[in-house]
Design a protein around this nucleic acid. Structure first.
Lengths: 283, 283
DNA sequence: TGGTATCATTCATAAAAAGTGATACCAGAG
DNA sequence: CTCTGGTATCACTTTTTATGAATGATACCA
């Protein structure tokens, strides 16, 4: 039962005749006759009673007419919804490093939600490497990551700049144990680079899935970790913060998304908001 | 946006790929590819993001998917409703002479409604001639009329037999004024026939649209009228009832409907109920 | 690194559906 | 009776949908 068939059905039902319906449909009368017959074949029931002059709905026809109206209306709605979703609505999946999610994103997300209350924003966290892969696979619409990506199918917007510091418990600053995220974290690479550079070798690494786990273990004196200064300053407890040289410490984060991702209005808003943050927040 | 197009859209969305969808749809991939493309052209928006392996819904695609499910379900419903209306549901329009509507029909209608609570019964009244025409034109599904009709496209079921009597105010029995329905009433023909036969000429006729009007005017002494005995006996007020010879008085009513009217279950019930009343209620 | 399997797309073409125009047919009106 | 206003039927064209084979891209595996 195709939508177009229902349209001719409605035309005949409303005009009470094949010829008048044909006129309204801008087609020829024989075509209308044929399509009605096909529809009747399909539902196995006569939809009209042929009168000497015109046709009149049968009981079954009246039933179908009701439904046909609804169906047609729904089709219109669907069409509308899809166009509208370019403007608003729909959903966006955004990934971010856990640290970014904690510090930078909340205010931005708030603003976004005010501007697009109908757009569903689904947040997830992951390591830089994981998220880059997900963006490339369209499992994420966009992501906040800690390194650039050399792939010209990807748009990258500078998001913010931050300074990494080493965090440990007092007296534990020279630990050879590094507590970090699982492989793929942008910060982890920096930390390892630093330890290698200052020759604190060999060092061992403990991997964690969440930031909470890392911080908990650092405060228990298990070792040291690397965190954005913003995050480190807000830690509760007694920690020592050790500066790092700029080339290690300063990391630029980017909001990335695939070029092929549809640029809906909400998506544009998101990128725009990201750009507004694009001030060197840290020297 | 045809239903069939949405079916392939859903298949692709659910299986996450053209090939798997094609398999499910029992057709070749190239066809699925083409139809998806056509749908995308139609809505002017990419519905899927092409990944290296398979396809994934875009934000707009997700929106459409929701609607597609609803639409498909609605279509199923419509199809079902039409078949079901053969069994039950739907509507039947029944016409009857006002006198029949008052006396014989109520109990029958009640039974009918108990058996088919989902069938809408629309009642109307009219003269025999009017209703015969309406049945022939399918403006009525069936009707209770006071004469047979010589048209072999029409089914006629004996409904009941009744006795007509003349009704007047006491002392007004020989009035030359006949109060009757508008032209086309089966009883009116009988009354005129009677007056002619007994030579009460000339007589004049006042036409009315409703039985109430007739009765009111009769009781005001304007003239006499002809009514079924059953009805006459139940009139409130002081009336004289005059018998008529059998050939004038006894009238058979019939439930008629066109042969071409679909014999739905409810319709069959109606005819069956009519036949149960088919007892000579009056000698 | 090359080989193989898995997908999507493209293209030429076949089959089916929708649309056309002419004509036949039917019933009511004059 | 013919005329008129309508539907149905028919042979035909156009459009849409479906097919099969070829192409290309990418992942997976050795």
């Amino acid at each position: 039962m195709e939508i177009s068939a229902l349209k001719v059905f409605i035309a005949v039902a409303e005009t009470g005749g094949v010829s008048t319906a044909a006129e309204r449909l801008h087609c020829v009368q024989s075509n209308v006759t044929a399509r009605i017959k096909k529809l009747e074949d399909e539902v196995q029931v006569p939809l009209f009673m042929r009168k000497s002059r015109g046709m009149e709905l049968s009981a079954q026809g009246r039933v179908l007419l009701d439904h046909a109206y609804k169906l047609l209306d729904m089709e219109r709605q669907a069409r509308l919804a899809v166009s509208a979703s370019l403007e608003d609505g729909g959903s966006i999946s955004l990934g971010a490093m856990e640290t970014a999610m904690a510090v930078r994103l909340p205010s931005m997300i708030k603003t976004f939600h005010q501007r697009h209350p109908h757009t569903e924003l689904s947040l997830s966290t992951g390591t830089t490497d994981e998220m880059i892969k997900q963006v490339l696979n369209h499992q994420l619409d966009c992501a906040v990551v800690g390194s650039t990506v050399e792939n010209d199918g990807v748009l990258q917007y500078p998001f913010f700049r931050e300074r990494l510091v080493l965090v440990s418990t007092p007296g534990d600053e020279t630990s050879h144990t590094l507590l970090v995220y699982r492989k793929g974290c942008a910060y982890r690479a920096r930390a390892e680079e630093w330890l290698r550079r200052i020759g604190r070798l060999p060092f061992n690494v403990m991997e964690f899935g969440t930031q909470e786990g890392i911080v908990g273990c650092v405060s228990a004196g298990l070792g040291l970790t690397i965190l954005p200064l913003e995050v480190a300053k807000n830690l509760k407890g007694d920690f020592t913060i050790t500066d790092l040289p700029d080339d290690i410490a300063i990391v630029d984060t980017y909001l990335i998304c695939k070029k092929s991702t549809i640029q809906t209005k909400p998506m544009k808003t998101l990128l725009e908001l990201a750009n507004q943050q694009n001030l060197s927040q840290v020297a």
